[in-house]
Every structure is written in structure tokens, then in C-alpha cells.
Deep mutational scan, measured.
Amino acid sequence: RADKQHVLDMLFSAFEKHQYYNLKDLVDITKQPVVYLKEILKEIGVQNVKGIHKNTWELKPEYR
């Protein structure tokens, strides 16, 4: 399990490339446990629960 700041850096870097990611792809990118990753994502992102981007994560507007 990596340092939180290191995980945040990896996530922000990923979100610079694409606006939406599913959790599986973010786990592959960060190599972090799902529960730990979700904890961090809830602080900086929102999970889309409907629409064409259903079940994906994106950054909260203040982090874009």
C-alpha cells in the first residue's frame, strides 16, 4: 500500500489523460487495494451512477 500522496499523484496524472475511469482501470494504474483506492477517490472524485458514464469515476470540479 503506497503513501497517500503518491497515490494522489498517480490519480491526478491519470485524470489528466482521461476524464472518466472505471475502478478496475484505476486499480491497474495505481496497483493499490480496492478499499484503500476508494477511500482516496471519495475525497477527490465522484462516482457516476447513471448515464453514459455509469460506474466510472471522475474528479470533482474543484480538482479538474
Results as ranks from 00 to 15, higher is better:
32 Q>L: 08
13 S>P: 03
34 V>D: 12
55 N>G: 14
51 G>C: 04
26 L>Y: 01
5 Q>N: 15
22 N>G: 11
9 D>N: 14
61 P>D: 04
14 A>D: 00
46 V>M: 13
42 K>N: 10
12 F>T: 07
40 I>N: 03
25 D>N: 07
31 K>L: 05
13 S>G: 14
2 A>Q: 14
23 L>A: 03
55 N>K: 08
5 Q>K: 11
29 I>P: 01
25 D>C: 04
7 V>R: 01
11 L>A: 00
15 F>T: 00
34 V>K: 13
6 H>S: 15
2 A>S: 15
1 R>I: 07
50 K>D: 12
26 L>P: 01
33 P>H: 03
18 H>V: 09
31 K>D: 06
34 V>P: 15
15 F>W: 07
54 K>W: 04
27 V>G: 09
45 G>L: 02
41 L>N: 00
25 D>K: 08
45 G>W: 02
30 T>E: 00
37 L>F: 02
62 E>T: 06
12 F>V: 13
58 E>V: 08
29 I>C: 05
4 K>R: 12
41 L>V: 05
43 E>N: 05
55 N>M: 07
55 N>T: 04
58 E>G: 14
19 Q>L: 04
35 V>F: 07
24 K>A: 11
27 V>F: 03
33 P>F: 00
27 V>K: 11
51 G>S: 07
27 V>H: 09
23 L>K: 00
31 K>Y: 03
54 K>C: 11
41 L>G: 00
30 T>W: 02
56 T>S: 15
43 E>M: 04
24 K>Q: 15
26 L>K: 00
43 E>D: 09
33 P>K: 07
48 N>C: 13
15 F>M: 03
4 K>E: 06
1 R>P: 05
46 V>Y: 11
7 V>E: 01
14 A>Q: 04
56 T>H: 13
7 V>Q: 02
36 Y>I: 08
25 D>Q: 10
11 L>Q: 01
41 L>I: 04
9 D>H: 02
31 K>G: 15
50 K>T: 12
48 N>F: 03
41 L>K: 02
13 S>V: 14
63 Y>Q: 06
8 L>M: 12
55 N>F: 04
50 K>C: 11
33 P>W: 00
45 G>I: 01
54 K>D: 10
28 D>H: 11
3 D>N: 15
16 E>A: 06
16 E>I: 02
8 L>C: 10
